[in-house]
Nucleic acid binder design. Structure first.
Length: 458
RNA sequence: GGCGUCGUACCCAAGUGGUCUAAGGGAACGGUUUGCAAAACCGCUAUUCGCCGGUUCGAAUCCGGCCGACGCCUCCA
């Protein structure tokens, strides 16, 4: 039984999709004003993991991830660089897509861009005004009236009365009924340049939260199964989404809210001034394999903070290689295929079904790895066990996606290996060792096994 | 100030009332194997779970206090 910790109820609860066998999933995507960093990707990788587990457990997943391509930050960038909004956003959207591919993240069914759904947002705002959940201010902006939604704060348990007294709220917005009311539509300002849409309230642009409500509704309907994001989006973003959506449609909005914790770097916040600010391309340049990045991000539970450090690459590499080398051993012995799995799969599944308990499922998987290696050493594995084992590794990798694609071995490396074999036959160990170093310098490791030399990439 | 998370070995990280003298991975060391390696396997590395009290027959797990780290509180995943 699949169970998730629902941020809304703050409890672990059985997952029951609205429509049997299908899951409608919405995940908050990037704001395309800059390159997404590894903190962003922790969340996207968590969502990928969730989706892969759902698929592995037999659900058909319909996944929508938005692209925020108009907001304060994108507009600011436009002004800074003297480019058009679409030039900026298409550039960073391309980079984002590239990183998704690099990290082997399963593509969503749709990546709607906010600017393509302004009409949907306007319609939704009109409904909210009609129902007296929103009001227009003198400058032509529209705000959501928090008071009008009695459940405001269900997600974050925020007490609006107290916040009002907080020093941190600077009321630079005039004409609001309540300083906490949030913008659905922002009236055009000089600094917006040519970024504007016509609306019943005049020229302007949508507020941030409304896009997710409008687009999730457009693709997934009023009421759907799972909505994910990083913890920092709980307030105000998701709280506001709930308010808008519920008030507009008069139906429940999302059944299960899942939030992933923050990524820390070197024990603290990632920041450019500390020099610990990394994007995916930075890590690839530093020699990280995509699978290693995935392993680091996925090996901690999604609801705990993980601390990213460069030296974790070593750990990830070693763990992945351990799995890969077992796979190679089994592959060499494979004689038949099978649809079955080792018995250990059942506990592994149970761990994943328990709120995506990746650390535990990894531990169980490595238990099996050791047991299987041990059996192989004693030559005690049947043909069926070999086939089942390969299935298990492939099933494991369907969810974690950390094993490297089996790369082709370059011809020059193959030649060096056969030269070395000749040297070894002649017991010319000095030459043999030299050749091994040379092969190593080309990025490959030779292992001498009773069945001859085996190559693996470093 | 409000809300919330966390503190387990050299490092990462499970476990949340008894089966815990605490999984799993990395690292170090010793051994088997190997021409030497690599990989693999075996052994070894916390009688103890930030500290102090309390509840209980029994706590890493519950309660209280303290110390420490981190996050959110209007646009940051």
């Amino acid at each position: 039984m699949l169970q998730f910790y629902n941020s809304l109820t703050r409890k672990k609860e059985p997952f029951i999709p609205i429509e049997e066998g299908k899951v409608k999933l919405y995940t908050c995507g990037p704001t395309v004003y800059d390159t997404a960093h590894i903190g962003n990707f922790r969340t996207f990788l968590f969502e990928d993991f969730l989706k892969r587990v759902l698929i592995a457990r037999g659900y058909k997943v319909f996944h929508v991830m938005n692209i925020t391509d108009v907001d304060d930050k994108t507009i600011k960038k436009t002004v800074e660089e003297g480019k058009s909004l679409s030039e900026i956003t298409s550039h960073y959207t391309d980079l984002f897509n590239h990183d998704l591919k690099t990290l082997n993240i399963l593509p969503a069914d749709h990546y709607p861009a906010a600017t393509n759904h302004v009409d949907d947002m306007i319609k939704m705002i009109e409904v909210l005004i009609e129902k007296c959940h929103a009001y227009k201010t003198d400058d032509g902006s529209v705000f959501f009236k928090i008071e009008s939604f009695k459940d405001y704060g269900v997600l974050t348990h925020i007490n609006m009365a107290e916040i009002q007294q907080s020093d941190r709220v600077d009321s630079d917005e005039y004409g609001l009924d309540n300083p906490q009311d949030f913008a659905l539509w922002k009236a055009y300002k000089e600094e917006d340049g040519d970024v504007a849409w016509d609306s019943p309230w005049g020229k302007g642009r949508p507020g941030w939260h409304i896009e997710c409500s409008a687009m999730s509704m457009a693709f997934l309907g009023d009421h759907f199964d799972i909505h994910c994001g990083g913890v920092d989006n709980k307030f105000p973003h998701h709280e506001n989404e709930i308010a808008q959506s519920v008030c507009a449609s008069d139906t429940p909005f999302v059944n299960t809210w899942l939030h992933s914790e923050f990524l820390m770097v070197d024990g603290g916040k990632m920041s450019k001034s500390l020099g610990n600010f990394y994007c995916i391309s930075d890590l690839i340049e530093k020699g990280f394999a995509p699978g290693e990045i995935r392993y680091i991000m996925l090996s901690g539970h999604y609801r705990t903070k993980i601390n990213f450090t460069l030296d974790k690459q070593h750990e990830a590499k070693a763990s992945i290689q351990r799995i890969q080398s077992l796979k190679d051993r089994l592959q060499d012995l494979k004689e038949n295929s099978s649809d079955e799995y080792p018995d250990e799969k059942s506990n592994y599944d149970t761990a994943l079904e328990n709120d995506l308990d990746a650390p535990n499922s990894l531990a169980l998987f490595f238990d099996w790895v050791r047991a299987t290696n041990s059996a192989l050493d004693k030559d005690a594995l049947s043909r069926d066990d070999v086939a089942k084992g390969l299935n298990f590794i492939s099933y494991f990798n369907d969810v974690f996606g950390v094993l490297p694609d089996s790369g082709r071995i370059p011809q020059d490396v193959m030649d060096l290996v056969s030269k070395r074999e000749t040297a070894r036959q002649n017991k010319d160990w000095a030459k043999s060792d030299k050749l091994r170093d040379l092969i190593g310098s080309k990025g490959w490791v030779v292992k001498d096994t009773p069945d001859g030399p085996k190559l693996s990439s470093k």
